[in-house]
Structures are given as structure tokens and as C-alpha cells.
């Protein structure tokens, strides 16, 4: 594995690590890590740093946001392949993820909204009326069990003995 790959694997697990900490964990000089990170940011290999949040537990006066998966069927039009239609959809800021899929439908759109109604409005007003969109099917997420490889409500108690020789 190259040094850059090693850095990426580490950041994927904990994006808050400083270059000094990365250097210490992987056994390299900090300067090398700084250079690698700058290069990967410039090359858009690293696109951003985010936190994994359990909104159900967040101390908020509002309800937890609504997450929806929208399956979209599309007729690709001459001179306007999937990419262009996808772009018209994913450019809306409320779209968190957008994938071209094999199988029963074409685009999978992941959306985060404040209310159920907001999702419904978005689908009815924005997506469904698009010329190339044949049909949509919306699914609401009821519970997050695991997100970004992290189990949401895991008990991490250390039940080992105090001393093991």
C-alpha cells in the first residue's frame, strides 16, 4: 500500500487526525504527510471532512431530520444522457447522494429534509415533472442502524478482567 493510500484509510476512519498524528501512527515524517495531503486535496482525491452524526440523539428542539431514498426512472434523451439529467437532480442542495444504478431503476437519490412534506414537495415539484423522468418511488428511512461503517447504538463496554498476564 502506498503512503497516500495509508493516509486515506486512516482519514476514512477518523477525519479529525492532524498531520502530526497521522505521521506518528504510520511512522513517517510529518512534512511528507503535509505534502501528500496537499496534493490529494488539490487533485480532489480528498473532497471534504465530515462527522458521522446520530441525529436521533442530538439535543435539538426540532425533530430529527427525515431521510429519504428516491428511486428515479429516466428515459435518456438524444444528446442528453444520464449524466445531464443526474446533474439537474443532484444540483439541488437537499440531495445528499446520487447514484446511477443497474437493475430496476436508474438513479438513486438520497435526500435529507426537515419534514416529510418537504420530501414530498421536492419529489412532486422538482423531480417528477422533469421531461425525462418516467416515474419515481420514494422510501423513507425509519431507523439508522449503521451508518458509514459505524453501528449507531453499540455498547462499547470493556468487560475484560482488570489484569490478564
Amino acid at each position: 500500500m502506498s503512503r497516500k493510500e495509508e493516509i486515506l484509510h486512516l482519514l476514512e476512519e477518523d477525519s479529525r487526525l492532524s498531520s502530526a498524528e497521522i505521521a506518528e501512527r504510520l511512522g513517517y515524517d510529518e512534512e511528507d504527510i503535509v505534502v501528500d495531503m496537499a496534493e490529494m486535496t488539490a487533485d480532489k482525491v480528498i473532497l471534504g471532512y465530515t462527522a458521522v452524526i446520530n441525529w436521533e440523539k442530538a439535543d435539538s428542539r426540532h425533530d430529527a431530520p427525515v431521510d429519504a431514498l428516491i428511486e428515479v426512472n429516466i428515459t435518456p434523451q438524444r444528446g442528453m444522457g444520464f449524466d445531464k439529467i443526474a446533474k439537474r437532480i443532484y444540483s439541488f442542495p437537499q440531495v445528499k447522494d446520487c447514484y446511477l444504478m443497474s437493475g430496476g431503476y436508474d438513479l438513486l437519490v438520497v435526500m435529507k429534509a426537515r419534514t416529510l412534506k418537504e420530501v414530498a414537495n421536492f419529489v412532486f415539484d422538482k423531480i417528477a415533472p422533469m421531461d425525462s423522468v418516467v416515474s419515481t418511488q420514494t422510501h423513507f428511512i425509519l431507523r439508522h442502524y449503521k451508518s458509514h461503517g459505524i453501528i449507531m447504538n453499540e455498547n462499547e463496554e470493556d468487560n475484560r478482567e482488570a489484569v490478564v498476564l
Binding site: 489484569v163 490478564v164 498476564l165
Partner: peptide, 9 residues
């Protein structure tokens, strides 16, 4: 803080 345990965490 137990760094006294000879088994995987």
C-alpha cells in the same frame, strides 16, 4: 485506564 490486560480489546 487499564493497560494491564494481555488480551485483544
Amino acid at each position: 485506564i487499564s493497560l494491564s490486560i494481555g488480551e485483544p480489546d
